[in-house]
Design a binder for these strands. Structure first.
Lengths: 248, 248
DNA sequence: TCAGTCGTTCCATAATATGGAACAATGACT
DNA sequence: AGTCATTGTTCCATATTATGGAACGACTGA
């Protein structure tokens, strides 16, 4: 399935920062001959996963991916039930709430609530680095060792001077998460930002997501963190319960 | 790229009605040997496009598709600027507004506004049959012949007794759309529902989407259609203008 | 405990993907 | 208007990968 992996690498090359690319840029980025890149793009285009404006214009991801992504979200109970709970957390804490889902492979931010929501503002749905976010660590702490090993093997990318970059440090942090019942991100992902995250469990008890409260460091001094954590943990528990009682 | 096409066919097999499937069901649906289906699913799983709950459980689409779909939407100017215009159309007409995008390949419904919107209700983002929806025909009428040919070649699926099912009838209908400046769906897609749709143009003048007003047939008698059409056409024009003046 | 069914793996064989080179089309410059 | 550079596209001899029947391992239900 070598060509399938190459095709997916082509898709992965597109991002919010670079939603369109030329054939040459794609070939260069992936170190492929132009003929190979062209054949991959032609196949993806036939499938509707990629589109091309003109014969000499750039390639971009196709709308079909929106439809496929929507199939995922429409089946994601977490996405459907968490909204009111997240709103309550925002009102209680005065901070921004993030909702993340875990599909056994990726930690994905899927919803975000703030004090002043904007209608139809596109929520940032994107993969989160699981080793240095409160939601990522809240999820990882309750996964089988194999999942943690896979994250470590994929590399622990550095974001700030506080980012966890060694396997040992990550495991110790996850031990603390299990003890406390919540995870902390103290400017690990981004300078000036602190987060508290707690795991959300599915009906079978497996951790399938997390919710966090996020705010600027000066608004979240160390003495305020346990109070915030209590709210986040309670919210995570109420979402977990809503998932259990939900039918369909 | 045969295996890539097979892999995409696997992805296409998932839907809102059937968000998870067994390996056997996928193999059977696509008439593939289990070994082949397994290899395709393993490769898609490695890529994060598909996930599997347990070693004996069903497969489902992965969250990565949500992220890729989001890259598409985040770059879709139409999606970002159309909201207030669609809201105005709803308020003026009292009917539901649909926003559709066209990527040169698919006509996709990407937003929907109603008199009583539900917060965080997941909008139905899915492919629309272009030959029998007002938005689809509003888009097709202004595309190169090759696009129309491709739609015809893909088959004109029947939904009601009023659905257009021949190439000749479709071309005639598209002629009328061009003359009037708007398209009509008089219970072609669904019994009891009528729609009026108008094309939305990008900065270069190409038709890249459409907007429609939709309601029950009894609320949209024939004499009301021209009045509604006027509102829809005006809304489409104002969205087109917003796209032209938009920068970034 | 056993039978049936599911997902997974193996490997001889069949089929497809590759990529250098050349071509066609487009845009920029003079 | 013509030329040149650059981009996307196509060809095909060759290299490499995908295939799928059969068997295996794991799990579930009786």
């Amino acid at each position: 399935m070598k060509s399938l992996h190459k095709a997916v690498a082509v898709l992965d090359g597109f991002s919010r920062a670079e939603p369109s690319m030329t054939l040459g840029a794609i070939a260069s980025r992936l170190k492929l001959p132009k003929a190979t890149a062209h054949r991959l793009l032609a196949a993806l285009r036939d499938a509707g996963l990629v589109v091309q404006d003109g014969t000499r214009d750039r390639y971009r991801l196709g709308l079909k991916l929106v439809a496929l992504g929507n199939v995922v979200l429409s089946d994601l109970a977490l996405f459907h039930v968490a909204g009111p709970h997240a709103e309550r957390l925002v009102n209680q804490s005065g901070e921004t709430a993030h909702l993340c889902a875990f599909d056994g492979f990726n930690v994905m931010s899927i919803d975000r609530r703030e004090m002043q929501p904007a209608r139809n503002e596109l929520v940032t749905i994107e993969r989160e680095p699981p080793h240095c976010t409160s939601t990522g660590k809240a999820i990882l702490a309750f996964q089988p060792d194999a999942v943690v090993d896979r994250v470590i093997a994929a590399g622990l990318e550095t974001f700030t001077g506080n980012t966890i970059t060694t396997a040992e440090a990550l495991r110790e942090d996850l031990d603390q998460v299990r003890e406390r019942g919540y995870a902390l991100d103290l400017e690990e992902r981004q300078y000036g930002i602190r987060c508290v995250g707690a795991p959300i469990r599915g009906p079978d008890g497996a951790v399938i997501g997390a919710i966090s409260a996020t705010g600027p460091t000066e608004r979240l001094p160390t003495n305020r963190l346990p109070i915030l954590a209590e709210m986040v943990v309670a919210t995570a528990r109420s979402i977990s319960e809503a998932l259990t009682t939900r039918t369909g």
